[in-house]
């Protein structure tokens, strides 16, 4: 069975169908791309998968667990983590603390332990610091550990967002336009990083992207959305050469 199974997913805003009859099945370990013109409903799909919106129709299952009706925080605990198109970091927290927030449910101690500074506080905090450092090192962010997240350069902020999502130990990672605003060099570097984290953390990745080079370079399969419905899906090279897809992107 696929890791993520979505069937007949749909949502309408004020009568307008933003996503309609959307189906996707992503296998464990896959690097899957979701592409489509602006306003095709890609981010809405992410918002549905992460519980930000509740779907009007359809089913979503991660590893056999039903996701419909769950709150965003619970979906995260089920094993889906995401990044955002418009970066959403905890700006006034340090880079390290951004990751440590994401470790909240993983390394636990009680409120009493933090009030009275019990031994468990010190040992768990230490574990958190080590763990966050490990994740930051993947992105070469450890040297910024104590800087405010808001003060990082743009590209590093995008990477920190990915690092933060990884810290929740997801089964499935959703990346919303990870290369947006990056120059070609940074994009190339990012492609390597994405492949690397897929292998290193043994996770499955679904990404939204406009940069066709990145998509063609790393995604194994694609789904193309247009006007909220699926236009094509399948092997990357086949989809990208589909005349329907080319028309949707370039117009008649």
């Amino acid at each position: 069975m696929a890791l993520l199974e979505v069937k007949n997913l749909g949502i309408a805003f004020g009568g307008l169908k933003a996503v309609d009859n959307f189906n996707i099945a992503i296998e464990k370990g896959e690097l899957y791309g979701l592409i489509g013109p602006n306003g095709a409903g890609k981010t809405t799909v992410f918002n549905l998968l992460t519980g930000v919106y509740q779907p009007d129709t359809g089913t979503m299952e991660l590893d056999g667990t039903d996701l419909v009706g769950k709150a965003p925080a619970d979906i995260c605990r089920c094993g889906i983590a995401r990044t955002f198109q418009n970066i959403r970091l905890f700006k006034k927290l340090s880079v390290r603390d951004n990751v440590k927030v994401a470790l909240h449910n993983d390394v636990e101690y009680s409120l009493l332990a933090s009030i009275f500074r019990l031994p468990s506080y010190f040992s768990r905090e230490k574990a958190m610091n080590e763990k966050s450092r490990e994740i930051l090192e993947v992105f070469g962010l450890e040297k910024y550990e104590n800087a405010y997240a808001a003060n990082l350069p743009y590209g590093k902020q995008r990477e920190l967002e990915i690092a933060r999502a990884l810290a929740t130990e997801p089964k499935l990672l959703l990346l919303d336009e990870p290369a947006a605003g990056m120059n070609p060099n940074e994009t190339a570097e990012l492609m390597e990083t994405i492949k690397l984290i897929r292998d290193k953390f043994d996770i499955t990745i679904l990404l939204i992207e406009h940069d066709m080079k990145l998509v063609a370079g790393i995604c194994e399969r694609l789904t193309v959305l247009n006007f909220g419905t699926e236009l094509a899906s399948g092997e990357t090279s086949a989809v990208l050469n589909d005349p329907k897809v080319i028309t949707a992107y370039l117009g008649e």
Binding site: K91, A102, H104, S114
Partner: peptide, 26 residues
């Protein structure tokens, strides 16, 4: 002490971006 703990960080994350906070399980 509360502020400088996992609970306090969670509180601050709600301040800085509650949508992101939810997305990491807070």
């Amino acid at each position: 002490n509360v502020v400088d703990s996992r609970h306090g960080r969670a509180v601050c994350s709600v301040r800085d971006n509650y949508i992101a906070a939810e997305s990491v399980g807070i």
